[in-house]
Structure formats: C-alpha cells, structure tokens
Design a binder for these strands. Structure first.
Lengths: 222, 222
DNA sequence: ATTACTTTTTAGGCAAGCCTAAATTTATTT
DNA sequence: AAATAAATTTAGGCTTGCCTAAAAAGTAAT
C-alpha cells in the first residue's frame, strides 16, 4: 500500500465517522456536506478509493470502508485523539481550541512518533472530548453506559463524558455556559414538541438546551 | 499575505539556506539539485514567489529573499528546530532520526502551537544539531567562535557544536563512529592534497575524515 | 569574435483535487 | 404509472506543482 495523500486520509476518516458503529452505507451528499465540497468531487474521489480497495462503492449506491480502509481510518482517528490529548494535557490548550491543529497533526507520517507521544502521555484511553483513543492495533474500548443526553431520562443525575467535537460554535457555547466534561447534569423537564430539555448543571443555574445541542453530548448515569 | 503552500514554504527555506549569511544570489540549478526537482519546475515557482513579493528574481540572474520572504523562511526554520528539539529532548529520538519528521511538522500552521512547545521546552537556544533556534521575532543568536572543522587548526582542542543535518548518511556515519555534539576533537594532521584530516576523538581511536565530512561539522575551540 | 558548452527559460503536457453545467439514475408524488 | 423532485454521475475546465523537449541566454575556449 502506497502512502495516502492528506486528502485520501480525510475521506476515509469522514466515511468512518458518518457510517457510525452500524457501518451504514454513506451517501455521496453526506460526504459532500461534511467535507464542504461538491458532490461531483466526492464521486471522483470515491472512484479512486475504490480502485485502491479502501472502500466498497457502487454507482448511486453509496460507499462503505473495506477492512483495509477502516484500519487506516482508525489509525488516523487514533492520531487525531492522541494529538488532542497532548495539546490539552501537556500544552494547556483548552479543549475547544485543539480541533484545527489536530486536523493537521493527524496527517504526520510516522508510526514511531505517534507511539512515542502515546507513551509520553501514559497511554491515555480517552481524549479531552471523552472519545476513546484506539490502541496501536486499532482496537477501540467504547465507554460503557454512555448515551446521548437527548435520550436521557428525567430526574436522573448524569455526568457528561463526551462532546461531539465537530462544531466549534457548539464547543464555544458550552464553554460559555460552563458546561464541560465531568459536569453533573440533571434533566428537569423535557418539552416534547421540539425535544428540548430544561437542565440543571450542578452548582449553576438552570438552562434550556435544544435537541441539536443535547444530541452532541454524551452522558453516563452517576 | 495569504497562507503559503507547503511547497512555497519549502522553497523559501531552501533559498535561505543556500544563500547563506552573505545573502548570495541563489542559482536555479542549485535549488533544483537541493529540492530534487528539474530546473524548469524551479523557474515556474520562482515566478510565482516573485509575484507574491517573497523573492527578488530576474531571468537568468538567480534569486534572493525579500525581507518578507526571509522572515517567513526564518519562522519555518524556527519551527523545524523547535520540533527537532522536542523530538530529541522529550521523546528520546536520536538526533539523526528526527529530520524527516521535523520536515513535516515545520509546516503545521499555528503560531500558538509553536510558541507553546517553545515554552514547554524552556525556550531552548540551540537545537540537537547545535544550530541556533530563531526567537519569535526572527532574531538568531549565532553561536560565537564557531568555525567549520575543515578550517580548524592543528594541535588545538575543539568541541563539536553543530553538524549539518542534510545528509542522513552523514549522520549515520558520525553516529557509527561515536562522533556527536560535545565530542572533543583534536586535529593531528592535515593532508593538503585533498584537505582531509586525521583527527583524534577524545577517548576513542584516531580516524581520517574527508573534506566532505569536515565541512559539515562545526567546532569551537575549548 | 565565433564556436562550443552550460545554465536557464519557454512551451506544452500530466495527475491530483477541486469546480460548474448538463445528463442520468433513483426516489417521491400525484 | 407518469411526472416531478432529489441525488448522483459524467463531461469538460481550472490551478498547483511537477515533467520533457526544445529554444534562448550566458559563459568559456579557441
């Protein structure tokens, strides 16, 4: 396998994320939206990735990663999360500042480098957003019991264990409202018409969160 | 000034290095050789860099950096040397293993990142090869008294303070012969016909070094 | 100073990765 | 099931950064 381009690596990573645990087929348009490119550009690249046996792809039918492609995607995610952990734990960046830098660092080509950073950090299991860091073999230990805040029950105390990192605006919003990993959260009321929640963050005032927000927050009962 | 491409940054860096302290004009062919591309490709890029006012360039007359171009080149060199220091001091890479990784890391776009790594390292003045690390303002403190081993005198004790890093083969050669930064070296004899030297490394056996080798080694009288 | 040699530039092409516009396939309505 | 809408692909183009081959400019040697 030749070295992949920065762009090819990015496609694999995003296909992996969109497909999710259920390994759903990934539509051309969903990739286009996520990568902020036109659908025609996606089609071009999908042909190339299929040629290299990194994805399965049939015209008009969407795509999915092959085992090879998935392994590579996971290694890129590993690098991304290790670098984020380094930036936050060692260089004192805030968790909402590191995404763009990690997006660059994840493409540095050196297995030895990432393994040494991993060791330097003491082989962390989770990154600053609460997401699991795949190990060198690509194995991912999912945090148990984690559910989305949007699916959580009323009158139960939860701890926030992850925040989907893809929107900087969201991260800023949470930071402004002093919501972060480890915050204790209690659902006071659920409004069925828009599935928004009135919640109480321990030690702070109550606040209303839209489903757009709650669906990005992972929680665990305490 | 827009963000420069990886390739443009590389050109500036190499022009800076070839020009040297005397700011000599840089010939198209010397860049071609160094970048391992064809002269015609160099010409293409020189036109573009001139257009962006990063270099001065006249057809058939070679090129040189403008103040703007030089500032950028120095910042890339700063990044390269800070990353090399990080890799050696913090991750325990050997000084001859870090060049290729640093070549990638030097293009990461984040002023904040490099400043924090610099602080993390305690604002080092020299990198593992003994070369000075420009500060944030681009100022370079050259090590005083440093000369090339090829120009050193007989019967004087020197300390090795720098090794030109561009040839991996050379670094390997020196490592194999247990020659490194801090080694004490004494010139026993100079052979005028090829300017090679017979030298003694303190605590080790004597060895003959060609001018090709000695011209890459910086020393300081002890 | 004219010839021969070296260096550099021009001209035309190619692959990667993106684009727009138009054609095609699939999905949804009526 | 035909018509419309949405998703996707094709066709053709553009820029970047490289290439080869040929022309032009500069340098050296007779």
């Amino acid at each position: 396998m030749n070295i992949l381009s920065h762009s090819e690596e990015n496609y694999l990573k995003h296909i992996y994320h969109i497909a999710g645990k259920e390994r759903n087929k990934v539509a051309t348009n969903s990739l286009a939206e996520r990568l902020e490119t036109k659908a025609s550009s996606i089609t071009d690249m999908l042909k190339k990735l299929k040629e290299k046996e990194l994805i399965e792809y049939e015209k008009y039918k969407g795509c999915g990663l092959t085992d090879l492609g998935e392994n590579i995607a996971i290694q890129i995610i590993r690098k991304h999360r290790i670098w984020e952990t380094f930036l936050v734990n060692e260089l004192n960046f805030k968790w909402d500042e590191v995404h763009d830098i990690a997006e660059q660092l994840e493409h540095i080509q050196s297995q030895e480098l990432i393994d040494r950073i991993d060791a330097f950090l003491g082989f962390p299991k989770f990154d600053p957003h609460g997401d699991p860091i795949p190990n060198k073999q690509g194995k991912i230990e999912y945090r148990e019991l984690k559910i989305n805040l949007s699916e959580a029950k009323e009158d139960v105390n939860y701890e926030i264990v992850s925040v989907n990192e893809d929107s900087l605006a969201l991260l800023r919003y949470l930071d402004d409202n002093k919501i972060g990993l480890g915050s204790e959260i209690l659902i006071l009321e659920r409004y069925d018409f828009d599935n928004s929640l009135k919640v109480k963050i321990k030690g702070k005032k109550t606040i209303n969160l839209s489903e757009k927000v709650t669906s990005c927050i992972g929680v665990r009962p305490m």
